[in-house]
Design a protein around this nucleic acid. Structure first.
Length: 498
DNA sequence: CTGGGGACGGGGCCC
DNA sequence: CGGGCCCCGTCCCCA
């Protein structure tokens, strides 16, 4: 019996040893395989990045060539005094002499091909003195910590205009300055940093206008320009984006910064009677656009900003100005009619408010987990939603400032669009609303290339593809995809019967 | 000119 | 309070 027990004990110990060894072996195999897979994944990611960079470089080259060509053509046109109309704009007519923009000539780049472009257009702001009393040169003296980043805008009131240095095409007009971004260099820098420390330096170029933007018509009278605009002269608000560092994601994949894919076309064609600012912010996330003129909400009283840096490619232009980069409540956009049918309207509004200065909303960002659902924002490549970041930051900031955002009743509109000052009760609402201004359309249709700023809009749009028409007219049997269509239809039928 | 359809923005409700 | 969803109104395009 004792022998039997000993035998069993020995068997058990042997089994245990065998089991342990098996586990160890399996673990080793798993570890080895994991290491191999990890290596392969890493290599694949590196290859992807390399290819992406090459693609971006190519796109940048194309964009730059196009920009140069466009600018040359434009200047030719201007030299000939040709008007250049880029399609009608329905809501703004700007008197010929009322030029609030600096008369630098913008660069118009066709984004139709979807190639990445970087447009850096520096528009010199009107001299304060020349602007006359109608132009209010405001500037907050206190530095808003929100804008203490390396973003500085300046309305050049008597200050040397922002110098967009490199690749400056000689402009035929005095005080006309155009800058085609030296994208390649910037990209290289970015790539280098990316390689070095998995960090990507991104230069955002969102050109901001440089001065006051009141809609007051008096403000539009900015005094004589040094160079009167030709009929086809172009004026452009100088947006800018700031340089920022993007850290790689934890999975080893670097954020697709789209550093070269700033498909922002700041095409401004300002023609008296037919104004199209052409400020296209194509936030094609799928192409890695970083030029999203992202916005931020702000609690009241946080509009001031001082000293921004206009980043012109690798050239950071720091200008000192007096105009506050603020969207004022009484601006054109703030009249509660920011219906903003599309961004063109916004452009028009910008043009109406010739002295527009915007807050640079690109303050910070965070990485964000990709959303892979078709209904989700199409930032499935790790793009960044600046607006959300900004809003988050602003909210935190506001709270830190004494609960400005959080105070008040729930019915109170405590979140304000930084573009039009429109108030919203909910943070998300203002985030969505600001897409009206930013042009951000994070929701893309999987059936077509259409993009939408809101998920429900995409959902509604999908009915076009699915043919879903759940709303049926009880009288004629007609089917409609939306209830409002049915209602309108029934109203008309009722009116016809009556 | 009219109606249908699509797009889009705001507001409200519900969870 | 935020997110999702829905409704509504409006504008625009097109047949």
């Amino acid at each position: 019996m004792a022998d039997c027990m000993v035998f069993h004990t020995q068997i058990a110990s042997i089994m245990e040893v065998l089991a342990n060894s098996a586990v160890a072996e399996i673990s080793k195999l798993v570890d080895d395989d994991y290491a191999v897979f990890r290596l392969e994944i890493t290599q694949s990611q590196k290859e992807n990045r390399t290819l992406r960079r090459k693609l971006q470089l190519l796109e940048l080259k194309v964009a730059r060539e196009r920009a140069e060509r466009t600018m040359r053509e434009r200047y030719r046109g201007i030299a000939r005094g040709e008007g250049h109309l880029t399609g009608g704009h329905r809501n703004v007519v700007k008197p010929a002499g009322h030029n609030g923009w600096r008369n630098d000539q913008p660069i118009s780049i066709d984004e139709g091909s979807g190639t990445s472009t970087q447009h850096v257009i520096v528009i010199e702001s009107v001299d304060a003195e020349a602007a006359g009393p109608g132009v209010k040169q405001e500037r907050s003296e206190g530095e808003d910590p929100r804008h203490s980043r390396d973003i500085q805008i300046e309305a050049a009131a008597g200050v040397a205009p922002p110098v967009s240095t490199e690749d400056l095409t000689a402009a035929p007009q005095a005080r006309t300055r155009c800058s085609i971004p030296e994208v390649s260099g910037m990209l290289n820098a970015a790539l280098k940093s990316e390689k070095d420390a998995e960090t990507l330096t991104v230069t955002h170029r969102l050109l901001h206008t440089g001065s006051d933007h009141r809609s007051d018509p008096e403000r539009l009278v900015l005094g004589p320009l040094v160079c009167p605009p030709a009929p086809g002269s172009d004026y452009l608000p100088v947006f800018h984006q700031s340089q920022r560092t993007v850290h790689s994601r934890g999975d080893g994949d670097v954020l697709d910064t789209g550093v070269d894919d700033l498909s922002c076309s700041y095409d401004t064609e300002m023609v008296p009677g037919n104004i199209s600012l052409g400020l296209e912010t194509q936030t094609d996330l799928s192409r890695g656009d970083w030029n999203r003129y992202s916005s931020s909400i702000y609690p009241e009283g946080c509009l001031d900003k001082k000293g921004e840096v206009i980043v012109v490619d690798e050239v950071t232009v720091k200008v000192e100005g007096d105009a506050p980069p603020t969207w004022n409540a009484d601006s054109h956009l703030g009249d509660g009619h920011s219906q903003g049918r599309d961004f063109l309207d916004y452009r028009g509004s910008l043009e109406t408010n010739l002295n527009v200065t915007t807050n640079s909303p690109l303050h910070a960002f965070r990485d964000r987990n990709p959303v892979s659902t078709s209904m989700g924002p199409s930032d499935s490549h790790g793009r960044v939603h600046f607006d959300q970041v900004l809003n988050s930051n602003n909210r935190a900031r506001a709270q830190a400032q004494g609960g400005g955002v959080t105070s008040g009743s729930s019915k109170e509109k405590r979140f304000f669009c930084m573009f039009c000052n429109k108030g919203f009760r909910c943070l998300q609402k203002v985030e969505i609303h600001q897409r009206v201004h930013t042009g951000e359309n994070p929701f893309s249709c999987t059936q077509c290339e259409k993009r939408f700023s809101r998920q429900d809009q995409l959902k509604m749009h999908l009915k076009v593809h699915t043919g879903e028409r759940p709303f049926v007219c009880t009288h004629c049997g007609k089917r409609f995809s939306e209830r409002s269509y049915l209602r309108i239809h029934q109203q008309k039928m009722h009116a016809a019967l009556v």
